Amino acid sequence: MADSSTDATTRRGERSGVPVSRDSVLAAALMIIDRDGVEALSMRRLAEAVGRDPMVIYRHVPNKAAVLDGVSELVFEQVRVDADDPDWTTQLREVARSFRELALAHPNVVPLLVTRPLSTPLAMRALSVVRPLEDILRLLMGAGFNGADALHIYRALFGFLYGHVLNELQEVVERPEETDEVLRLGLHRLPITEFPLLRGLAPVLAAYDGAAELERGLDILLTGLTATLPRTTP
């Protein structure tokens, strides 16, 4: 005779009617994080989302850290690089724009995109996480950069992108209905004698445009790289 825990697991499985896989578990985790944030994710809540006993979830992901790694993989899988594009600067701009769109679509996942890969040695990261690096290296080396310079460009680009999306997502307006920029941004809380320059930039801060800031940053970054890094003839 089956015990009560077995019966409960069976009832949950029958209620769901959908086979559980690693992909379905990670998709459910991404939905929870998108809606309620990383802090709201637990293995029990994840099990409830897929209609299974928590022990079933552990067959596909060993712990919460593995779930967080998997969620970052899901998003990184959507980063596309055309390594055969003859115009490397245009292609990197397209990569940057699509990365920003992914970040805005999954703002609660952005901290995972920045931190989770760093917690794993490069060769042990998921293929979807390493693939953009390989493709960008191929793009740049095909454009005539040597391997070391291509790696430098990749690091500079993604270092800029991580910083940009984190900054854009933190541009919170305290009083959106307020017309005075200092009050709108909450800068009135800062002592004027200690932060005169920051308060003086209130109109610029209030007019923050994430897309325009991205393009301006890319202009500076790519122009500098083009001017300073040597290339061989492809």
Results as ranks from 00 to 15, higher is better:
residue 4 S to W: 08
residue 4 S to D: 06
residue 5 S to T: 08
residue 9 T to Y: 04
residue 9 T to E: 13
residue 17 G to M: 09
residue 24 S to D: 06
residue 39 E to P: 03
residue 39 E to D: 14
residue 43 M to D: 01
residue 44 R to S: 13
residue 44 R to F: 10
residue 46 L to M: 08
residue 48 E to K: 10
residue 52 R to P: 06
residue 55 M to C: 05
residue 57 I to S: 07
residue 60 H to N: 12
residue 60 H to K: 08
residue 64 K to M: 14
residue 72 S to D: 04
residue 73 E to G: 08
residue 79 V to M: 11
residue 79 V to S: 04
residue 81 V to K: 05
residue 86 P to D: 14
residue 88 W to V: 04
residue 91 Q to L: 02
residue 92 L to I: 14
residue 95 V to G: 04
residue 95 V to K: 00
residue 102 L to Y: 09
residue 103 A to I: 05
residue 104 L to W: 14
residue 112 L to H: 00
residue 114 V to S: 03
residue 117 P to C: 09
residue 117 P to M: 11
residue 117 P to V: 13
residue 121 P to F: 12
residue 124 M to T: 05
residue 132 P to S: 09
residue 133 L to E: 03
residue 140 L to I: 07
residue 142 G to W: 12
residue 146 N to A: 13
residue 150 A to K: 06
residue 154 Y to G: 01
residue 154 Y to V: 09
residue 156 A to L: 13
residue 158 F to L: 05
residue 160 F to R: 00
residue 161 L to D: 02
residue 164 H to D: 14
residue 168 E to Q: 12
residue 174 E to C: 07
residue 175 R to E: 08
residue 176 P to A: 03
residue 176 P to E: 03
residue 179 T to K: 14
residue 186 G to A: 04
residue 189 R to G: 04
residue 192 I to Q: 06
residue 192 I to Y: 03
residue 196 P to I: 10
residue 204 V to P: 01
residue 204 V to I: 12
residue 208 Y to E: 05
residue 209 D to N: 11
residue 211 A to Q: 15
residue 212 A to L: 07
residue 213 E to G: 14
residue 214 L to S: 03
residue 214 L to F: 06
residue 220 I to E: 15
residue 221 L to T: 08
residue 225 L to A: 12
residue 227 A to K: 11
residue 228 T to W: 14
residue 233 T to Q: 14
